[in-house]
């Protein structure tokens, strides 16, 4: 479904990513792990169109993404969350989900001015879908509360709900469990697994290995901008290169 081929990205002299090749097949949950500064978020930014790679190619559902604008990428069916929560804080939880369906709607300003049937039907659909998502993520009770005032866990889940509101085929999750306790992490993991059953492919960046084990079909390990390992969670765990990247080699330890 998503294919990255030889992606490199450099900022000035700094090479953030070099020759990253990765694929997310349909209906699979793929993990992306790596130490801080390895280039994970840079990669998500590239896939979601916020920055463009220096070289390499991206194809999504058969379409070539070359310097494609972020809103086009969303319309093609890629949605994302952010490592640092970036909800529309002044707006209610419900409004956040309405805005995320922007590309689903077609009613123009004129339709809204004259209350065209098309506008009214569309608004009803948008609100229905938003309420369904709120319920699914246990947020119905806080629908009318400003997103910025919600408890942290609710904000995390609302961000995932908002990404889903764009009705993606591929979901990019950037550290979805950051700051959550083990019970919350486990519950979120179950929700992620249910998304796969709905036919959504997922690329998840995570530090929490328990979540990776719980949900991922396969895992890529990124270190210093390069993929150093790829396999099932258990294979990754046993790979000496991965252990070295996280814990340092014996040489480092004795130095």
């Amino acid at each position: 479904m998503l294919e990255l081929n030889g992606i490199s990205q450099s900022f000035g002299g700094l090479k953030a990513l070099s020759d990253v090749t990765l694929s997310v097949p349909e209906q699979r949950i793929v993990g992306l792990i790596g130490p801080n500064g390895a280039g994970k978020t840079t990669l998500i930014n590239i896939i979601s169109g916020l920055s463009h790679p220096t070289s390499g190619s991206i194809t999504f559902a058969g379409e070539h993404l070359h310097r494609t604008a972020p809103h086009h990428i969303t319309r093609l069916g890629i949605a994302r969350t952010y490592q640092n929560i970036r909800l529309f804080g002044d707006m209610t939880a419900l409004q956040n989900l309405i805005i995320a369906q922007h590309a689903r709607g077609h009613a123009s300003l004129l339709d809204a001015v004259v209350f065209a049937p098309r506008y009214r039907r569309e608004e009803r659909d948008l609100y229905q879908h938003a309420e369904m998502l709120l319920e699914r993520f246990g947020l119905s009770g806080v629908a009318q509360i400003a997103a910025g005032n919600l408890p942290y866990g609710d904000q995390r889940r609302l961000e995932i709900a908002r990404a889903l509101a764009t009705r993606p085929k591929l979901l990019l999750l950037d550290e979805p469990t950051a700051g959550m306790n083990p019970a919350e992490t486990r519950a979120l993991g179950e929700q992620i697994l249910r998304l796969r059953e709905d036919g959504i492919a997922i690329l998840v960046i995570e530090h929490d290995m328990s979540l990776i084990h719980q949900v991922c079909d396969e895992v890529y390990v990124l270190n210093f901008g390069q993929i150093i390992s790829h396999g099932t969670p258990n294979e990754i765990k046993a790979d000496p290169a991965v252990i070295e990247a996280y814990l340092g080699s014996d040489d480092d330890a004795s130095a």
């Binding site: 979601s48 169109g49 916020l50 604008a69 972020p70 809103h71 969303t74 319309r75 949605a79 994302r80 952010y82 970036r86 529309f88 804080g89 002044d90 707006m91 409004q95 309405i98 805005i99 995320a100 922007h102 590309a103 300003l109 809204a112 908002r162 764009t166």
Partner: peptide, 19 residues
């Protein structure tokens, strides 16, 4: 109008929402 409000709050996220 909702797109306008979204852009005011966070232009980058608004773009990621398909605006």
């Amino acid at each position: 109008g909702r797109a306008m409000a979204a852009i005011r709050q966070d232009e980058t996220v608004a773009a990621n929402m398909g605006i």
